[in-house]
Each structure stands twice: as C-alpha cells, then as structure tokens.
Design a protein around this nucleic acid. Structure first.
Lengths: 157, 157
DNA sequence: TTCACTGCAAAGTCTTTGCACATAT
DNA sequence: ATATGTGCAAAGACTTTGCAGTGAA
C-alpha cells in the first residue's frame, strides 16, 4: 500500500478540501507552498512568490486562500503589531519578539510561554495561544545603542 | 506657591508641550481628556467623544494628536490583534487578553508577565513591554461553551 | 453538467499627506 | 508677527465584495 504524507504532501490539501466539498486548485496549492517556503510572510509577499510560478494569480485569491487555509488549520496568522498580518505554516510554532525601536522580529520557542500559560489558565480560565500574537519590547542591540528604557521608541512601531 | 499637578492636570500637558516648543491647543487637551475618560478606545471612539464637546474636531487631528501624545509618553497604544489600535493613558498599565473566539478583551495586571520578562531579558537581552501588545487565546466562557482547544476559532479575529 | 473558484474592478476600512487658513505664543 | 496647528480633501495601504466567466469533479 502506498504511503501518503498526510502532513505536507499535495494530497493532504486535496483530501482536506474534498472532505468538506471544496475543490483542489493550482492556486490553493501554490499559496500553501509559498507559505511553507517563505516561513513567514505577508499576503503581499506570498502573492509575489506565487506569481513567480503563476503570474496571473490575483491578490484577491491569495487573501481568500489564506483565509481558507487558516480556517482549515493548515496555516496560521500572527499580528506583529502594525500593518499586514504575517502567515506561517501551522506546524511551525513559535512566539515572535518585535522590537518597537528597530522593527526587528525574532522568534523564540513556545515553551518559554508555558509558565505564563499555566498561570493564565489557573487564574483566569484563559487558554493562551502563544503563537498568534507577538510580544513587543526593545531588542538587545537597541538597548545597547539607544540607551535603556528611557528613550521613547524612535520609529517603526 | 501654587500646587501644580504634573501628572494629570491641564498644566502638565501645556508644560510638556512648551518644553519642546510646541503649542497647547483645545484639541490636544480634549483628546487627552477623552483617552482618560474612555480608558481604552480606538481613534474613532476618541474622536466621537471629543466631538461631544467640540463637534468641529477632525479625525485627522485626533490621529495626529494621539501620535503626538504617544511620543510624549502621555498615552500609549496597544494592538489588540485586528483593526484599529487601542489607546489608553500611560499611567494605567495592564496586559490585554483577547479571546479570538468571541473577541472579548480582558485586562490582567502587568506583574503576571514579570517572570517571562525576566527570562526574555536574561536569555535574549530583550526588554519586554508587556502592555503594548495583547495575548490571544480562548476565554473561559468560550472554552466552556464551544468546547476546548479542538474547535477552530469561529469568527471575530 | 454543475457549482465552487477565480480574476477583475469597485468599494470599504483605517490612516497619512498636502495645503491654505487659523491661532497660540 | 510668526510658524505651529487645524480642517478639509485627496491619496495611500490593506482588505473585502459583487459579479461574470472558468474549470474541477
């Protein structure tokens, strides 16, 4: 019997879609591939990536497809604080650290959030979804350069 | 000698502005008052509040003034994950918990973030600004109602 | 063959910019 | 008197919607 990669192969998407009476299309596969290849990206960036292969794909389709894949649980989006959201594959879990002085974005493992998650659950009954939103603050370099806490954020967000 | 409330009186704003060669205007005071009265609000809501007193004030002025007050450190804004940012007075520090199933926003004391803040600082040299971004997840009610982790977010964000 | 999906264009939010006039100092 | 601040209108970034035609099943 043939092995079917139900996690990342093209068949996974097709099956998931068919299970819900939806159709597999080249656009959908391309968008999912683009998210995987880019790691993190905005709809705009994903669209550009898709267009390398299929120049006719419309940004509208990218938005609709990202929304669909998000609802299917195959990708997820994170709000980094300003502007467009940032999409990544669902499997790749991490927390974002956004420096609001230089705009730099770092990733840290989700596990660091576990203690906080436990507290929130115990005290507020709130189940934390660590990877959906970013944490903001000031990064090492900006602390070193622009001086500590005192200075207001320069720019970016 | 007269007592001057340098924290919240009208003179505080005037002084801060004059120190930087900027001018005190009724609009600026009204926007700051609106943020104080509303606690949390979007630029749109702040504008509506200001217009109760001064109907001619333009939304553009509200945006410009909020940006100014933010740079002056008198208000701060938080990204709740979707749409417009949320402004509040700088003094009132807290973390937001946003339920991505029902959209509800709760506040928790900043201190809960201290352990995480310490870890981030020690391991990554990152100085956390807990109140600038929200934490998302699922609230107690939604967990009870819609069942736990399993179900995809319904709606809202 | 049928109906979900796509592309296109238009509209909808939220926010910023340019400019002439108003006004705080 | 001066140049900062304001209102207005237009534009800009990001996203959604309506609709007719396309193509997956």
């Amino acid at each position: 019997m043939a092995f079917v990669d139900t996690v990342s192969g093209p068949e996974a998407l097709r099956e998931t879609l068919h299970d819900r009476g939806m159709r597999m299309t080249p656009q959908r596969q391309l968008v999912l591939d683009a998210v995987r290849e880019l790691g993190h990206a905005t709809p705009e960036e994903i669209c550009r990536r898709v267009r390398v292969t299929a120049p006719a794909v419309n940004i509208t389709t990218v938005y609709r497809t990202l929304d669909l894949l998000d609802r299917l649980g195959m990708v997820r989006h994170t709000h980094l604080g300003h502007g467009a959201p940032n999409y990544s594959v669902h499997a790749h879990e991490h927390v974002h650290l956004v420096c609001h002085r230089c705009g730099r974005v770092d990733e840290i493992p989700c596990e660091l959030m576990s203690p906080l998650g436990g507290t929130l659950e115990a005290e507020y009954g709130f189940e934390l979804d660590a990877s959906h939103l970013a944490l903001s603050g000031t990064c090492r370099e900006c602390l070193a350069a622009g001086g500590p806490a005192g200075g207001r954020p320069e720019e970016s967000e």
